[in-house]
Design a binder for these strands. Structure first.
Ligand SMILES: [Zn+2]
Ligand SMILES: [Zn+2]
Ligand SMILES: [Zn+2]
Ligand SMILES: [Zn+2]
Lengths: 159, 159
DNA sequence: CAGGTATTGATATGTTATAACATTATAGCT
DNA sequence: AGCTATAATGTTATAACATATCAATACCTG
């Protein structure tokens, strides 16, 4: 495992590898990674931060890939549906999946200072949340697990 | 503990008890449970469901307690700040706290069929999310833990 | 009762997301 | 290649959620 996103890493290969996996997944599943979708994924992958739909739309618009809200929301719906991106509910924003391929119910660590977001691969539905649900007779279909706080770098910076 | 919200219970005393606790807390903390705030809490307490800010506003407006968005958002900010209500991020909606008094990082079970919401008292930051955060050197300040799925009643109804 | 703080009233605007319908591209089939 | 069904885009409009700002009023406290 690893909560990529904090701490520097070879981001160029991080991006290229994810794009490559996404292409392979689309090919094998008969999904179509069209220009807008592919570019949207690249844009999200550029940083380990969450982007608002309208932030994405702004970039797409500059590049002539579409200027109306549905363009961004359709691309995001596709990426989220395919598992290539996740919505961060606490921010109403979207982020590229950092563990593509791994089957996961993601959990996120969100730094309120530098806005970076790390995706942890922790299967929250199997922890206490799962216990509580089982006890209540509730069947979980999707989980939203997000923690807001301060990342290691920002703690060091403050010290 | 208990994930109140699913399964019937004496809701009248559930509401009255919570209101009473809220009043006591305000008195002891020098907070002011003004008419709009008190009525907003009553409205949220009426059901174990989450209400949108504009749903609340609609009810307040009918009762002559204010017709503009800030009225509802101010009341909700107060209730959330005081710990009397929580925001459900996955729904952009608000719900009265079901465990008033218990210090808690709440977790919610949200039925996508009947829209009822149960609040579990599970301290999510102490489970796997906490482990992942510690491992990453991340300091958690707030957690959003929400599970969407099907409640016991709706499972029975479908069977 | 004067002065500071919290609350409310009111208007406007900003931000996020979807509905609806026309048009164009793609893929599979004959 | 031509036909058809489906998927994707273009475009307009609007719904739903949330905040900024400033003026007026209520409330506590000295
Ligand atoms: Zn992921
Ligand atoms: Zn940070
Ligand atoms: Zn609560
Ligand atoms: Zn239900």
């Amino acid at each position: 495992m690893s909560t990529i996103g904090f701490a520097p890493h070879d981001h160029k290969s991080c991006v290229a590898g994810t794009l490559h996996k996404a292409e392979a997944h689309c090919a094998s599943q008969g999904l179509r990674l069209t220009p807008v979708r592919r570019r949207s994924l690249e844009i999200l992958l550029a940083e380990h931060r969450a982007l608002g739909a309208y932030d994405l739309l702004g970039i797409l618009a500059k590049e002539g890939l579409g200027a109306q809200p549905p363009v961004a929301y359709r691309a995001l719906d596709f990426l989220v549906g395919a598992g290539f991106a996740h919505k961060i509910e606490a921010l109403n924003a979207y982020i590229a999946c950092a563990h593509l391929g791994t089957c996961h119910m993601p959990a996120f660590l969100i730094c309120r200072s530098c806005k970076s977001v790390a995706e942890a691969d922790t299967a929250p539905a199997q922890g206490r949340l799962g216990d509580a649900a089982r006890e209540a007779g509730f069947v979980i279909e999707r989980t939203v697990v997000e923690a807001e706080g301060i990342c290691p770098q920002c703690q060091d910076a403050a010290a």
